Computed example of a mutant assay.
Amino acid sequence: MSAARGVAVISGGAAGIGLAIAERLAADGFPVAILTRTEGAAEQAAASIEQSGGIARGYSADVSDRGQVDDALAKIRADLGPLSVLVANAAVAPQQPFLEMTLEQWNQTLSINLTGTFNLVQAGLPDLIEAGKGRVILISSSSAQRGAPRMAHYAASKGGQLALTKALAVEFARTGVTVNTVVPSSIDTPSVEKKRAAGTIPSAEDMAKYIPVGRMGRGEDIAGAVAYLASDESSYVTGQTISVNGGSFIG
């Protein structure tokens, strides 16, 4: 059951890993607020969750724009109540060779993946501190741990999340708020399927050959780890990185 009866906010929660997280937290009893920059997508995802018996609302917001984040959180508080869990999942994962990467491409990736995380967490954290408990959960990537060719901007942004987790966990430990990161690897999502169709990544079968458990991950695998970190049982867990990768040991 939830660490508090407050709202769980999931950025990038309308599809893939984010949607799986939203569905799981709603099933666990959280009122869920889904943020996405695609007009109408969050509302559609929330409607699907409500049809399954959960409480959910969708809000359009670009996490790289602080004003939009502030406005969305104000609406969430008015609609559903104070925040309890912040899941920073919104991200882009473009591919460009490093020597051909433009400053604009670099900045755009960091503005969504890392500054977007900053915006959501800083804007929502006061609710958690006031309550004396709460959960901040960042969704990083194994690219930050092992590197990723043609994705230097993505790997750097995700590595920044790992460092941010450590800093915030220490700074806010005495408030009752925990801060942790889940690190997915080889998760089958709609965005991965698009890259597979474009021929930029191998087939699921080929990728599974290099994963010890013998399959690619699912959004539900990540959602399970998030659900634990959002629960009462994780109150003594903070500043940690939980890798959900099918046994792919990354050093």
Rank of each mutant, 00 (worst) to 15 (best):
M1K: 13
S2Y: 15
G6H: 12
V7S: 08
A8G: 05
V9F: 08
I10H: 06
S11E: 00
G12Q: 05
G13D: 09
A15K: 15
A15I: 04
A15V: 07
L19C: 02
I21N: 03
A22L: 06
R24K: 13
A26Y: 11
T36V: 00
R37K: 12
T38Q: 10
G40Q: 11
G40E: 10
A41R: 13
E43L: 01
A46I: 03
I49S: 00
I55W: 00
I55S: 14
A56C: 12
A56W: 13
R57G: 09
G58T: 02
A61S: 07
A61V: 02
S64V: 00
R66P: 01
Q68K: 09
Q68N: 04
D70Y: 00
D71M: 02
L73S: 01
A74E: 10
I76V: 15
I76N: 04
R77E: 13
D79I: 03
P82K: 13
S84P: 14
V85N: 12
V87K: 10
N89R: 08
A91Q: 09
A93M: 10
Q95E: 13
Q95P: 02
P97G: 03
F98Y: 12
F98S: 14
L99Q: 12
E100Q: 15
M101N: 11
M101D: 05
L103G: 11
L103W: 07
W106L: 11
Q108E: 13
L110F: 00
L110A: 05
S111T: 02
S111E: 12
N113W: 01
G116P: 02
F118D: 02
L120F: 01
L120T: 01
L120A: 01
V121I: 14
Q122W: 11
D127G: 06
D127F: 03
L128G: 04
A131K: 11
G132R: 12
G134E: 06
G134N: 08
I139A: 02
I139W: 10
I139M: 05
S140E: 04
S143G: 14
S143A: 15
A144K: 05
Q145A: 11
A148I: 12
P149C: 03
R150H: 13
R150E: 08
H153A: 15
Y154W: 08
A155H: 05
A155F: 04
G159Q: 07
Q161P: 05
V170L: 14
E171C: 01
F172Q: 00
A173H: 10
A173I: 12
T175D: 07
G176T: 03
V183M: 02
I187P: 03
T189M: 06
T189C: 04
P190E: 10
S191H: 05
K194Q: 15
K194N: 05
K195N: 12
R196K: 11
A197N: 08
A198L: 11
G199F: 09
G199H: 08
T200G: 04
A204M: 08
A204N: 09
E205M: 11
E205R: 09
D206R: 13
M207Q: 14
M207K: 07
A208H: 12
K209W: 11
P212G: 10
G214C: 13
G214F: 05
G217R: 09
R218T: 14
G219W: 06
E220A: 14
E220H: 00
G224S: 09
G224R: 06
V226Q: 04
V226T: 07
V226E: 08
L229E: 08
L229N: 11
A230G: 07
D232M: 06
S234M: 10
G239W: 10
T241A: 12
S243R: 08
N245E: 08
G246V: 14
F249S: 14
F249N: 12
